[in-house]
C-alpha cells in the first residue's frame, strides 16, 4: 500500500474536506447556542400537538403540568390526565387509540426529553412560578409548536442574564443553583 491516492485525487479530497469543515463550522460552531441543543425537536412516541391543545383549545399549561407550583420538577402528565378528555374526545384517531391501549394495559408512554440541564445544576420550577415568570419566557411560544422544540439555549449565561436584571430581584448566589 504505497502512496494510496494519486495527486489529483488527494487534491480533490483535501478540497472536499475543507468544504465539509467550513460547512460544519458555519452551520454549527459559529451559530449562537451551539452545543446547548437549542432547537432540539425530537420525535415523540405519540405526536402530541401543543398548538392544538394549548393554542387552539387554550388549555392552561398548569392543567396538565399541574405540580409545577408545588415542586421543582415540571411533571409530564400521567395518562389519567389525558384520559380526562380522551375517553370521549377523538377516539377514532390512531394516536388516541395507541394512548388508550397503553392506558388500559397499565403501561405508560415513554416521552423523549427535550429540555435537559446537566446534573450539577438544579433548576427549581416552583420558585419561578411563584415569582410570576411566564412559561413562554423560557420555553418560547409552546402554544404554536406542533412538536416541542428547545427554544432557548438554557445556558448559564442566559439564566444569569435574567437574574442580573435589578427589577427581577433574583438571587445571584452560586449555591442558588449549584448545590
Amino acid at each position: 500500500m504505497h502512496r494510496v491516492f494519486k495527486r489529483t485525487a488527494a487534491g480533490a479530497m483535501a478540497f472536499i474536506g475543507a468544504l465539509m469543515v467550513t460547512t460544519l463550522l458555519t452551520g454549527c460552531k459559529f451559530q449562537p447556542g451551539w452545543g446547548y441543543n437549542k432547537g432540539y425537536a425530537p420525535e415523540q412516541p405519540i405526536p402530541f400537538d401543543h398548538s392544538l391543545h394549548a393554542g387552539t383549545h387554550k388549555i392552561q399549561c398548569q392543567y396538565c403540568h399541574n405540580q409545577i407550583e408545588r415542586t421543582k420538577h415540571a411533571n409530564i402528565p400521567a395518562l389519567s390526565t389525558c384520559m380526562n378528555c380522551h375517553l370521549q374526545v377523538a377516539t377514532d384517531k390512531p394516536a388516541i387509540q395507541k394512548l388508550r391501549e397503553a392506558y388500559d394495559n397499565g403501561d405508560s408512554i415513554e416521552w423523549t426529553r427535550v429540555h435537559m440541564l446537566p446534573d450539577f445544576v438544579h433548576f427549581n420550577h416552583n420558585a419561578h412560578i411563584a415569582k410570576g415568570v411566564n412559561c413562554q419566557t423560557c420555553h418560547g411560544p409552546i402554544e404554536t409548536m406542533a412538536k416541542v422544540q428547545q427554544f432557548s439555549d438554557l445556558s448559564m449565561g442566559w439564566c444569569v442574564n435574567c437574574h442580573r436584571q435589578p427589577e427581577n430581584k433574583a438571587p445571584l448566589n452560586c449555591s442558588t443553583c449549584h448545590y
Binding site: 460544519l24 454549527c28 452545543g35 441543543n37 432540539y40 425530537p42 405540580q67 408545588r70 415542586t71 421543582k72 420538577h73 411533571n75 409530564i76 402528565p77 400521567a78 395518562l79 389519567s80 390526565t81 397503553a102 392506558y103 397499565g106 403501561d107 405508560s108 408512554i109 415513554e110 416521552w111 423523549t112 426529553r113 435537559m116
Partner: peptide, 26 residues
C-alpha cells in the same frame, strides 16, 4: 468525533394513574 455533538436521548416516563399523595420530587 465531529459527528458526536448531541447528548444521548433521555426518556421521561410518567405515571399511568398518578396516586394523589405523590408529588414528584417531594
Amino acid at each position: 468525533s465531529a459527528g458526536c455533538i448531541r447528548r444521548p436521548v433521555q426518556k421521561i416516563v410518567p405515571y399511568n394513574k398518578q396516586p394523589e399523595e405523590v408529588t414528584l420530587g417531594i
